[in-house]
Design a protein around this nucleic acid. Structure first.
Lengths: 194, 194, 194, 194
DNA sequence: AATGAATGAGTCTTCATTCAT
DNA sequence: GATGAATGAAGACTCATTCAT
């Protein structure tokens, strides 16, 4: 999916506006304004507002995947691999804060097609992590549990920490790296005092 | 906050419609229809659409709190207390599936006031669980970690499992009780193979 | 199909605007203006612009039918019956000039549904006249020809004269009654010099 | 008015699209597509959409005139001359069905200039036939009636039969030649049973 | 001559909200 | 208290037309 300059320009503006206002409150006019193009230009590159939103999400997902892929190659052992994933997802959330929320949860009111498409992206994302977990289970590093469940839990924890900044933005101080360790420990060891 | 019959009637209709359509796609007309009252009547009991949505969420949060409070009294030890919380939250999600998502994440495009109010409700909810965790830490049941972080992780896991049904509704079979155990174990012991 | 006052008001305004501008050039705003109501009001009474146009046409057709029915009762013999029909159609054209054209030919660009509906109205109209002709054939007043063809010819002549005013409106002088006789004679006797 | 290849190409595409969609629903883009040229090219050869439509109609009228002229030379006596006219007009309708309607009646919403121009074309067409009729009157073949009126009637009948196919396309079976005879007889002898 | 990306005025349509009854 | 007709601001989307290349 090659994006030319104008498309990139519009998508960047869309990211900003959708992040600030959410899909329904965002207006195509405002996005056009932000991008410095005419309204009609947006409709030259995208079918409609919904298609623009979808394209945006797809592109963000792709950039997230790419980050994770890069991390995968870096880390050899399980710990560094998982920590890379956590780190890169958190960084992504940190950079895209509001948009990330839209990407993950802002589907209320969208049509079924859209939800299915999102489900697909989501699953692709999950499968990637699932494989890392599965291998660790086979290697005896992790307990013999459902890899699916482990992924759900891991992503749940990551998202929860990732979204923390959102609603009570007081304690943005802990560095991403610190949070990575916290998450990794919680995920691996749990909270029980053995 | 006393609710008379008409208010209850409207709120129930609103729950249904908002759950199905989300805040922005839902129309006041449809809610009025669903409730069997005239549009104007809604404006007699609620200031506007946003206020209706807020009232709905507040009322749902209250019902969730109540459930959790009831559970608290039942379980004496930490395990049963936490499991009660997990169970009741999952049940809540199961019953209110779509609405729950709106309640937790559908804030994109809402005004700042609304978000703050939601933040407050959320914190109240968190504090309740936080206390249980804090006590367990003091009692030496849990490691000496940040209770805040533990709560974030626990809620993250619960939400992640609670929302599972949403996007891929194939495996609705595992009973809530089973999932409660899975979550409890993941939260307590983590996934590491010791 | 009972029409309340507001509907009537809007339909009258629509008649004026559609007649002047045609379906595509007419704007809902202008119709609303003309009717002295807000744009939204139109959408309260009619589904959309197309529905408004259709309703208008149906109502005009009905008024035409009613005129013709009244005429039917007046004239007993064939000649007066046909002349009544011609007279009433011509009067209708005279009064509704531009609109009549829309009603009969302005279907380019309309959806198939619309065209079918119009075809139905048209046929109903034709059948009425067809019966008069058929009876006259059986009574030996008219030659033993296809009643269908006779109706096509008769309507063709009437419309041709009815629309005359449209493009070259110079000679509006001949009274409708005179034209009725001209049409009747052309239809009955043809132009051949026997 | 010489037409080069590109103009011809565009005009043919325009004929197709205008016939299918009508003036307002047809888009310049679609015509360009159909013609296999870029949108801009159309504006090199035609001033604007309206001018393109006008050019199309003029060209069609010219082709109709040419047909009729050819017929004129073939038929020597009145009967064959009129029948040729009827035949050629019907053939034209048969070939250009939808477009013919646009050509004759799709003027709603067009500007005054356009209507005048069309009126001129129409009159030129009429005058041609008018002369044939006028001569027949002088020769005593036809009654001593207004040639104008006779032309109106004749064209009305032809159009009515020509458009028949349009709305109820069931009985397309009668050959054009048969219909020519029917029309000629109706026009000449009328329907009265003498 | 030809292209097609870019424009932006113009329209339909929706829907939260009001208020006279 | 309840109604629902009426409002009008707001927004998505279309498409004829232009012009730099």
């Amino acid at each position: 999916m090659e994006l030319n300059d104008k498309e990139r320009l519009i998508l960047d503006a869309a990211a900003e506006v959708f992040a600030e206002k959410g899909f329904f409150k965002a207006t195509v006019s405002e996005i056009a304004n932000e991008a410095g193009v005419a309204k009609g230009t947006i409709y030259f590159y995208f079918e409609n507002k919904r298609d623009l939103f979808k394209s945006l999400i797809v592109s963000k997902f792709e950039s997230l995947h790419q980050r994770i892929n890069e991390g995968e190659q870096k880390g050899e052992d399980f710990e560094s691999q998982i920590k890379e994933i956590i780190f890169r997802k958190l960084s992504f959330f940190a950079e895209e804060e509001d948009l990330a929320k839209s990407i993950i949860y802002d589907f209320a009111g969208m049509d079924e097609d859209f939800k299915l498409e999102m489900g697909r992206l989501r699953n692709r994302h999950r499968d990637k992590i699932s494989k890392v977990i599965q291998k660790a289970i086979e290697d005896g590093i992790l307990k013999d549990i459902s890899a699916e469940d482990a992924v759900i839990a891991l992503l749940g924890i990551i998202h929860a920490f990732g979204f923390e900044n959102y609603l009570n933005s007081e304690k943005k101080d802990p560095s991403v790296v610190e949070v990575v360790d916290i998450i990794y420990d919680l995920f691996m060891q749990g909270v029980h005092n053995k």
